[in-house]
């Protein structure tokens, strides 16, 4: 769908993007992750053709990205804003027209959306008379009204109460089901696993990780398990080449251990070692969350930079 190749963006004092390549597959929800100031906004602005990269190429459906693609992209910026003095309906029609919709078509679709989100009574209200959450809802509609093939959402849930956040999330999923590719930019990881098929992690102007969520998690599985057991005999001897004990919690004969199995061994080997000594109640693999991976990768690059200095 969208392919960024070797993008470099240089500002006067710093390099905002350093040789970043990203592939966004069609019909997926793509998480663009990274801490503040990593370069996410620069990438989004380049995709929106607000700014141009110093070098590198961007392909939209295998065509060089050009102004004609603007109408196929919908963009919800992190910093929301609308003309405060303008009426909701009027403003929506104006924004839709700028995206190439006819006035009639814009009206028709607005009626559909306003009814769907139950905000039909807002048509003649001024933006400044709406609450912040209401404004966000209006702006979300403005983003998707022209039925873009690529929707870019920069922190779409900020400013919403949980109820409305859920409504917006459902709408995003529905748009995705109907064929839209979605770029979801955030530095909040909770929703990423729930929503994203693929992610790219940007830090310090560089892409440090990308791929499907499943693949990345598998990559970061490091044979860590949590095992509940009841000791049958004396104390279990954890002095073994099989694993390292990370945590131990015990209450009478109930024991919970968190272990990291050493690379040359498997879970089966560990179980074989433990079963004679205890009754196994539960074995759970600890899969790293995207959050953990994010923290790990970001602090790791941080360390590297420090060491280099």
């Amino acid at each position: 769908m969208l392919s960024l190749r070797n993008i470099v963006k240089q500002y006067a004092h710093h390099r905002a993007l350093d040789d970043v390549s990203i592939d966004i597959p069609e019909g997926k929800i793509f998480g663009l992750l990274g801490p503040n100031g990593a370069g996410k906004t620069s990438i989004i602005r380049i995709i929106n053709q607000i700014t141009a990269p110093d070098s590198g190429e961007i392909y939209f459906n295998n065509e060089r990205l050009s102004p004609k693609h603007i109408e196929q992209i919908g963009y919800l910026p992190e910093e929301r804003g609308l003309y405060k003095k303008m009426k909701v309906g009027e403003q929506m029609i104006y924004l839709a027209q700028l995206k190439g919709l006819s006035k009639l078509e814009a009206k028709k679709r607005l009626n559909y959306w306003f009814e769907k989100l139950d905000i039909s009574t807002w048509w003649d209200k001024r933006i400044e008379d709406l609450s912040k959450g209401m404004q966000q809802k209006v702006q979300f509609i403005a983003t998707v009204l022209h039925e873009p093939k690529l929707i870019i959402l920069d922190e779409p849930f900020s400013g919403f109460d949980p109820l409305n956040a859920q409504i917006i999330q459902d709408e995003i999923l529905e748009l995705n089901k109907n064929g839209a590719t979605i770029i979801y930019s955030t530095h909040r990881m909770e929703t990423v696993e729930e929503l994203c098929d693929n992610i790219a992690l940007i830090n310090k102007s560089k892409k440090i990780l990308d791929g499907s969520v499943k693949h990345i998690k598998r990559l970061y599985q490091n044979q860590t398990y949590c095992i509940d057991l009841t000791a049958t005999g004396s104390l279990i001897d954890h002095q073994t080449p099989l694993y390292q004990l990370d945590e131990l919690f015990s209450n009478d004969d109930y024991v919970q251990i968190k272990i990291k199995i050493n690379p040359e061994y498997k879970l089966n080997d560990v179980l074989n070692f433990l079963i004679p000594q205890a009754e196994i109640n539960q074995v759970k693999e600890i899969i790293p969350t995207i959050h953990d991976i994010f923290i790990e990768k970001v602090t790791q690059t941080h360390r590297e930079v420090h060491e280099q200095n």
């Binding site: 929106n48 053709q49 607000i50 102004p67 603007i70 992209i73 963009y75 910026p77 910093e79 929301r80 804003g81 609308l82 003309y83 405060k84 924004l95 700028l98 995206k99 702006q139 403005a142």
Partner: peptide, 17 residues
């Protein structure tokens, strides 16, 4: 200044030059 402050500028600029 109004467009800049209300941040609508980014939405518009993603549609027109």
């Amino acid at each position: 200044i109004e467009e800049k402050n209300s941040r609508i500028i980014e939405v518009i600029i993603s549609s027109v030059k």
